[in-house]
Amino acid sequence: MTVSLILVLVLTALIHLINTLIYSARWAGVKTGRLATAYSLFNIIFLIASTANTVQAPLLSSLVERTINQGLAALGSHLPDDLLLQMPVYQHELHLLEHQIRWVILSATLGTVVGGVLLPPFVRLFSRTILLFEEVGSVPRLFFLALSPRRFWNALKVMRPASPGSLRRVMAHKLGLPKGFLLLNIFISGIYTTGVLSALYAGALFPHYRTTATLLSPIVNGVATVLLAMVVDPTAAVITDQALQGKREEKDVRQMVAYLAITRFLGTILAQLLFVPSAWLIRAVAELLV
């Protein structure tokens, strides 16, 4: 396993950990009664994931380029793509690349699990941060206070992972959420996890037009984006607003956050199944365009 691949795995896990912790913004917003502030402050944390993504993307792309270049160097660039894919040497390179990308998907799963385990303590810490921000009224001052040894030590004491018993208590309550909303989140999470990865792999399946294939990731992600915007986000927003208005109990939001994290985890498992078929779909679309 190369250093660049290890870095990709770490960054992918970090990105998915933060994307799972995003669910805590709704819970903390309801807990403190300050939903807008919760989202605003979490955007600062989300910048970490965005920065990690800017480093991860070229590293992932380099893995694909290495596979293609090694295959072409061994067989020659004059071979048509379909014939190139049949060559044992190139098939070996493709197999190695698929193995590496499946490790990347697995790191997304692990990052999601860690994020899910840290959700309850992170909500406690984030709720304190929201109230502290109201006192200081400035993000730079908030960071300055957060970095003080005493507050940093107190934050570490709060960050105790959730116990299996807490998950069982959430699951024991009657499900007060739309089941279709949760099932869609599995599908959406699976597509988002594999969308860019499948497009990169499609570039290796269509090496002479790999840029076209790689840029077609919206073919896969577009469906998930529409479903997220039309079903999942509005439903989660309604449940959150109802809790803020007193029409629902806070435990309903807690249950929603827990189930969204669980379905996100299941989505990363589904991504392992969607990965290769999605890559061939993107390759087929790329062939129509060239």
Rank of each mutant, 00 (worst) to 15 (best):
M1H: 12
T2V: 01
V3L: 12
S4A: 11
L5M: 01
L7E: 06
H16N: 12
L17Y: 14
I18F: 05
G29T: 00
A36V: 10
S40F: 09
F42A: 06
A49I: 04
S50P: 04
A57T: 11
S62V: 13
L63N: 03
A74R: 07
D81L: 02
V89I: 13
Y90W: 03
Q100T: 10
I105W: 03
I105R: 02
S107M: 04
G111Q: 00
T112F: 06
V113M: 14
V117K: 03
L118R: 07
R124D: 14
V136F: 01
V139T: 10
R151Y: 12
F152V: 14
W153F: 13
L156E: 09
R160L: 12
A162S: 13
A162Y: 01
G165H: 11
G165P: 01
L167N: 05
A172K: 11
A172H: 10
L175D: 06
L177Y: 00
F181W: 15
L184V: 03
S189K: 08
T193H: 00
G195S: 15
A199T: 00
L200V: 01
A202P: 02
G203Y: 03
L205D: 00
F206C: 06
H208N: 10
R210T: 07
S217I: 12
G222C: 06
G222I: 01
V223T: 05
V223N: 00
A224Y: 02
L227C: 03
I239N: 05
Q242K: 15
R248S: 04
K251V: 15
L260W: 05
L273A: 14
A279Y: 00
A279N: 00
A279I: 02
V290H: 15
